[in-house]
Amino acid sequence: MLSIVDLTVRYPTQTAPALESVCLRVEGGERVAVVGPSGGGKTTLFRAVNGSVTVQSGYVALEGEQVGRARGAQLRALRRRIAVIAQMHDLVDRLTVYQNVMAGALGRWSSLHALRFLVSPSKAELGEARSALERVGIPEKLRSRTSDLSGGQRQRVAIARALVQRPSVLLADEPVASLDPVRSEQILALLCGLARERGLALLCSLHQPDLAVRYFDRVVGLRHGRVVFDRPVAQVAPEQLVFAS
């Protein structure tokens, strides 16, 4: 499904590469946790997968199509299949919840369709937003103002938006970094459940090694831009995970 081959990314302002010769393969339905210290390259890896950073060598391919080579409409078409969930600061506060949720559909809508939706959403569109919100557990928030939501609810709206996008890959960049332990577990359970039921390749960066072991199939350690280990949860020794926290 998603293959990352010999990927090297270097930022112009830094001497050390942000990612160096990273190789990774994630299949549909597989749930992979990426752990490692801050600045280890997790965010850069996600940005490279999403095609929003210039790659020096190697490539990212989604079902055989290279993300780094794509431009314009082709890049947009690829991005549509890769949903990104960031830390909850990426919703548009002035819009309603259903508008934020349906923003996930912008990749397949024409510009005119997008404008028409803002003015008068159709019944079918509202229905799609409602069922996405039902899946993440907050259907009652359909028409709320996004700025009135709590942190955990915002995270759920971001996940609902990703669902509406109908992706084949789900990238979650530290989705639980600013949530309390109970909410963190709820969100991870939700993400992993979705990955299994829809056959998505889930790539999720985390700071908490215990959560990585409990919820995911595989754990990848990133440090100084390199993959330092990559193995199924059953084979991960606890001491390997200590540095991640």
Binding site: R79, R80, L95
Partner: peptide
């Protein structure tokens, strides 16, 4: 951040303006 999130959905320029830049 919200604008980047919209770009990540593969949205077109005009849609990003209407859903992100103007409301923000």
């Amino acid at each position: 951040a919200p604008v980047r999130a919209l770009e990540a959905t593969g949205a077109k320029r005009l849609a990003i303006v209407a859903f992100g830049i103007v409301p923000l």
